[in-house]
């Protein structure tokens, strides 16, 4: 019982601290803005740990964070191999291929309003569909290894990226294009020097959406069949063994990988589209 009381006290203390912090002058500084969510996250972890210990929750139902952390420490090689198989081989390959193909397709249909009118509604429609459902088919076609996961990812990221790129290529206004025309710039010069740079905010929006989709696609596709390595495989196999700490360890890795991937794209975006109003500080 004492664990529960300690946890609740930590929760109330953290919450009180946060209320004080958010109303204090420090809330407007960068450190304050970082500290408040961190404190919140920590209190959640303490509450979780305390409740699990205090109420004697079976580790088969919910392992405490300390057990998950210990598991991460003890099975780093396994987690590393799973990460390599799923995130790098499956998700990243598919992400690069899918986003690349979508940008090229968008440039290809750029000159034809007819194709755009036809492809965009179809693309919007497909972007809303449960595309992960295509995973069993891809596993059947490309086998159990990472190729099938990459294929699922390609299809998942293609349409959001296509829709964003086409929208981005329309982002220049007539004045700017007229200026390029007065310079007697060719179509490709206009594309490379004006329209692609102007499309960058949209491209990065698509890239950010796709970065999350890619990891989800690769993990879920592994539920339909995979070699004996990979994050989705490990989650599925650990369920059978009721090794919940392993699953949470994989989830932690997936969360870290997803956030890091997203953060990386956002960082590149900040570097490349520093001129855009949304990036100014």
């Amino acid at each position: 019982m004492s664990w529960v009381i300690v946890a609740l006290a930590a929760w109330i203390g953290g919450w009180y601290l946060n209320i004080r912090l958010s109303h204090a002058a420090v809330a407007r500084t960068r450190a304050g803005q970082l500290a408040v969510p961190v404190i919140f996250g920590l209190t959640i972890l303490i509450l979780w740990e305390g409740l699990v210990r205090g109420l004697n929750v079976s580790p088969v139902i919910l392992p405490p964070p300390s057990a998950v952390l210990a598991r991460i420490g003890s099975s780093l090689p396994t987690l590393g191999a799973d990460f390599w198989q799923t995130a790098v081989k499956g998700a990243l390959t598919g992400y690069v291929l899918g986003c690349g193909a979508a940008v090229l397709t968008a440039i290809a249909i750029d000159r034809s309003p007819f194709l755009q009118k036809g492809l965009l509604p179809v693309g919007n429609f497909v972007a809303a569909l449960p595309i992960v459902g295509i995973a069993p088919i891809m596993v059947m076609w490309f086998g159990f290894d990472w190729q099938s996961k990459a294929a699922v990812v390609v299809i998942m990221v293609f349409f959001p990226m296509l829709v964003n790129t086409v929208a981005g290529l329309k982002a220049t206004d007539a004045m700017q294009r007229d200026l390029m025309a007065t310079y007697s710039a060719s179509y490709w010069q206009t594309l490379a020097k004006l329209r692609l740079p102007a499309a960058m905010p949209f491209l990065f929006n698509g890239l950010k959406i796709s970065s999350t989709l890619a990891l989800i696609g690769a993990i879920v596709a592994e539920f339909f069949g995979s070699p004996i390595v990979g994050m989705g495989f490990r989650i599925n196999a650990s369920i059978g063994q009721l090794a919940l700490d392993m699953i949470w360890a994989e989830i932690a890795v997936a969360a870290l990988a997803g956030s890091a991937f997203y953060g990386l794209v956002a960082l590149i975006e900040r570097r490349m589209t520093f001129w855009h109003p949304s990036q100014r500080r």
Binding site: I19, V36, P37, A254, S259
Partner: peptide
């Protein structure tokens, strides 16, 4: 306080493959 503590996590959670 809720805004400052929950909102960053709500946004960060979008980048996590929750489906897993």
């Amino acid at each position: 306080a809720m805004d400052m503590s929950v909102m960053p996590w709500a946004i960060a959670s979008q980048t996590i493959p929750i489906l897993a």
